[in-house]
Nucleic acid binder design. Sequence first.
DNA 1: CCATGGTGTGAACCTGAGTTCAATTCTTCG
DNA 2: CGAAGAATTGAACTCAGGTTCACACCATGG
Lengths: 221, 221
Amino acid sequence: MAYRRTERVQEQLQDKRNRILQAVRAVVAEVGFRGAQVAMVAEAAEVATGTVYRHFPSKGELFAEALALNAGHEVEVVAAVAGSDGPAAARLADALRVFALRAVRAGRLAYAMIAEPAEPEVDAQRLVYRRAFADVFETLIEDGIRNGAFPPQNARAAAACVMGALNEALIGPLAPEARPQDSGAPTTRATIDAIVAFCLQAVSARPYARPSHLRSMESPS
Amino acid sequence: MAYRRTERVQEQLQDKRNRILQAVRAVVAEVGFRGAQVAMVAEAAEVATGTVYRHFPSKGELFAEALALNAGHEVEVVAAVAGSDGPAAARLADALRVFALRAVRAGRLAYAMIAEPAEPEVDAQRLVYRRAFADVFETLIEDGIRNGAFPPQNARAAAACVMGALNEALIGPLAPEARPQDSGAPTTRATIDAIVAFCLQAVSARPYARPSHLRSMESPS
DNA sequence: CCATGGTGTGAACCTGAGTTCAATTCTTCG
DNA sequence: CGAAGAATTGAACTCAGGTTCACACCATGG
């Protein structure tokens, strides 16, 4: 017996692991999930391709973990804003705005995290974090309902709608095509204001009495 | 000179082309974009693999055209409802409900069309039709603003939000996992009602005066 | 310093699904 | 009917890119 994993080595291992995860972040921010290859990540991390596989079982799991790292942090930030004190409406508005601003700042990376197709494991992880965000909003909405800030409503569905509105309306400004270098341009800022207003009104308005006269809706040929 | 493409042959060609497109529909409804292979489509269309390539240049373009076919039809249906007469709010509610009901009916297929990652060409086409739907909503909202049914607002952003809310809130019920055979279950119906209410309130409520006290929002490590 | 075993390397390997194409079958019309 | 030219076929080919692995290098502790 003449070898035992020393603490220093252990740290170097962790370090390398983190370097690889950060490299994924960098590569994805550059070329998106579509163009991100394991070889590129290895190069960015200053490591050989094989080394990547000493730390992660597959490309899918590596990328999924990288997404989890980022998304997890974002959830924390948004949850912190949502969980601060103050009126529910203001907290919701702030949470939405923080999410949107940070996404716009992150640009390509945010687009990838939010919407770009990728390995199944990544897509699955995305769903998890999407739900995590929705849960934050749901809790906030329920909170608001309890103390009368918002009218009674289906908080779960409303949270999903908020999440969807946010993502969809942001994809335009974030899309990899047609965004030269406008991180924070007036257009974007106006869009964010519109999104926040939209969601706030949806959640805080008195229930809308729905009309009931549907028309034709036959199936496609 | 002893051959000329006769009209009958021409029709058979068209027929085969359509059969292939329909086969894509069927296969995607069954296994989604992820699992859909050209060989499967060929089998479903009762054609050899090679024949597919006599009608379409590549898998991506074939699938994109299939999506365009479906999505185009859906846009027409929704646009028809949106463009009928009656108060703007009622038309918007109806358009949303028709979209949602038809999606729920279509199940797996709708999920694929709305959200499932696929070839770049397909994803691109999806964006086109997503925008087409958004345009329908945008026109409707602008219309409502003009004749006072809705308050002044950023119609473009609102339309994107509506589209996003609709899609996101529907993905839950439509997701391929955890949906045994509940096409139209009470939960789904309640969700649809909630979505419609959400969007209607968002668009028709008086503008929400936004608060302005943002907190910390540092970047990830 | 050397025996033991872990870690790093990167070129070679493998895979599966899209695509091709030579051979076959079918259509047309003199 | 038969020659010319299309359409069809499906087995074989291709190839990008993830994954592996034999070898080299380094760390440990007696």
